[in-house]
C-alpha cells in the first residue's frame, strides 16, 4: 500500500536525494520489531539454558554468557536426573498416532463432504465449524469421568482419542477445501473406467492429496504436541507424561529453589521439534491455517 504512489509520479532525483525516506525507515523499524518481538522470549530461554547457575542468578543480569559462564549441565541434568527423553518419546508417540488416526478418519470424511452429496451434509459441516470454538476446559470434566469410568486413565488412548477429535475439524475443513479444488474430470473418467468410490480414493485421489495431507498433518501434530489440560488430568503416572506437563511440573513443587536452568533447558527441548517444523514448513503452516479458518 505504501509503495503504490511511486510508479505514478516518479519524484525527481533532486528531491529524492534531500528527502529522508521515512517510509523505508518505518518499514525496517517494523521488520526489526517483528523479529525481536517474535524471537526475543525463545532466545532468552535458550541463553538461560546454557548459563551456569551463578550466571543465571547473578546480581546484574548476564545476557551473553562468557566462556567460564557457559555450560551444558542443565541439559545433562534434564536427560539423566529428569529422564526427559521418556517424555519426548511419549509426546512423539501420542502426537504421531493421533495425527495419523485423524488423517485416516478425517480425510475420507472430508472427501465425502466435498463430493458425494450426502444428506445432512450442511448439518455436519456447521457442527464441525461450531466445535472449533469449544475451549478444552469445557470438555475435560466430562471426558475425565468417561476416562475414569472406562478405566482408560494412564492409557495413551485417553489422549489419542481426544487429540484425534480436536484436530478433526481442522482436517475436515482443510481437506474439504482441497478436494473441492481438484478437477472433477479425473473422478468422472475413473468412474467410467469402472472404479468404485473406495478404489478411486485409494488409487487416484490419495496420491494427489499427499501435499494437503502433509499440511494438515503438520498442524495436527503441533496441536497434539502442545495440548496441556487433557495430558495433565488423564495421565498421572510419571513415566507416561508428555513434555508440556513434565516441564511445567519440573521443580514446581518448591517455591524457594526454582531450577531456572533446567526449566529453561526443558523449554528449549520441548520447543525445538516445533521450531524445526516451522523452519521447514512455514509455507504449509500458513496455507493450512488460512484454509482451515477462512475458507471453511
Amino acid at each position: 500500500m505504501t509503495t503504490a504512489p511511486q510508479p505514478i509520479t516518479p519524484p525527481s532525483s533532486e528531491s529524492q536525494g534531500n528527502r529522508i525516506p521515512w517510509q523505508r525507515i518505518a518499514m525496517w523499524a517494523a521488520v526489526i520489531f517483528t523479529v525481536l518481538f517474535s524471537l526475543g522470549p525463545p532466545m532468552w530461554e535458550l541463553l538461560t539454558s546454557i548459563k551456569t547457575n551463578d550466571a543465571i542468578t547473578a546480581d546484574s543480569v548476564v545476557y551473553i554468557p562468557s566462556w567460564d559462564q557457559f555450560t551444558f549441565e542443565h541439559y545433562v541434568q534434564l536427560f539423566t536426573l529428569n529422564q526427559f527423553h521418556i517424555y519426548i518419546l511419549n509426546s512423539l508417540f501420542v502426537a504421531v498416532v493421533s495425527t495419523l488416526l485423524c488423517l485416516g478418519i478425517g480425510a475420507p470424511a472430508a472427501y465425502a463432504l466435498a463430493r458425494l452429496r450426502i444428506p445432512g451434509e450442511r448439518l455436519v459441516l456447521t457442527c464441525v465449524m461450531g466445535v472449533t470454538l469449544f475451549p478444552y476446559i469445557l470438555l475435560f470434566l466430562g471426558l475425565l469421568r468417561l476416562v475414569q469410568f472406562t478405566g482408560l486413565a494412564n492409557n495413551y488412548l485417553a489422549l489419542i482419542i481426544p487429540y484425534t477429535a480436536i484436530n478433526m475439524p481442522l482436517t475436515i475443513l482443510v481437506m474439504r477445501s482441497f478436494f473441492q479444488q481438484l478437477p472433477k474430470d479425473l473422478e468422472d473418467s475413473a468412474k467410467i473406467d469402472g472404479y468404485n468410490v473406495l478404489q478411486m480414493l485409494w488409487q487416484i485421489i490419495l496420491p494427489m492429496t499427499l501435499p494437503a495431507l502433509v499440511t494438515t498433518g503438520i498442524l495436527a501434530f503441533i496441536f497434539a504436541w502442545n495440548e496441556f489440560i487433557f495430558a495433565l488430568t488423564f495421565i498421572t503416572q510419571e513415566s507416561m507424561k508428555t513434555i508440556p506437563v513434565a516441564a511445567a511440573q519440573l521443580g514446581g513443587t518448591s517455591l524457594f529453589e526454582v531450577p531456572y536452568g533446567p526449566l529453561a533447558a526443558a523449554t528449549v527441548v520441548g520447543t525445538l521439534p516445533l521450531v524445526i517444523l516451522v523452519l521447514f514448513f512455514q509455507r504449509k503452516i500458513v496455507q493450512g491455517l488460512t484454509a482451515g479458518s477462512v475458507k471453511g
Binding site: T34, V35, S38, L39, P41, P42, W44, E45, T48, I56, T57, A58, V61, I222, W225, N226, F228, I243, P244, V245, A247, A248, Y260, L263, A264, A266, T267, G270, T271, L274, V275, L277, V278, L279, Q282, I285, V286
Partner: peptide
C-alpha cells in the same frame, strides 16, 4: 518464519519462559 514461531510453540512451555522473563529478582 520468525513471526509464525510464537503460534507454534507449546503454551505451557511459553508460560515457563514468560514466568522467567517476569521474575522479580533475576
Amino acid at each position: 518464519t520468525a513471526a509464525i514461531l510464537p503460534w507454534a510453540l507449546p503454551t505451557a512451555l511459553i508460560a515457563l519462559a514468560w514466568r522467567w522473563i517476569f521474575n522479580d529478582q533475576f
